[in-house]
């Protein structure tokens, strides 16, 4: 297996692993956050605006972890620096 194939295979597999494993944690975190927010909303409907706003900001914080993983996997797939390096050497 030459360098080009190795880099291509490693990039594709890593991209899949990145998004797959990276989404696990944020998914569970968002689930917990929404669950506790719903609980809080049921107990104190008066504070709904504060709870909703904090929930959205918190969800964005949690979600950004998944977004980082997504960005990394997109870079691996479409703008891979190692791949570009190898292709530039071949030419």
């Amino acid at each position: 297996m030459d360098n080009t194939t190795l880099i291509a295979a490693a990039s594709i597999i890593t991209a899949g692993l990145t998004i797959g494993l990276g989404v696990l944690g944020p998914g569970m975190g968002q689930g917990r956050a929404v669950a506790s927010a719903l609980l809080a909303l049921a107990q104190q409907p008066d504070a709904s605006s504060t709870i909703t706003r904090t929930l959205f900001v918190g969800l964005a914080m949690i979600e950004s972890m998944a977004i980082y993983c997504f960005v990394v996997s997109m870079i691996l797939l479409f703008a891979n620096p190692f791949w570009n390096h190898v292709i530039a050497q071949v030419k």
Partner: peptide
């Protein structure tokens, strides 16, 4: 990165 990632995705 958050804004970029969301819109790019």
């Amino acid at each position: 990165v958050r804004l970029f990632g969301n819109m790019m995705s």
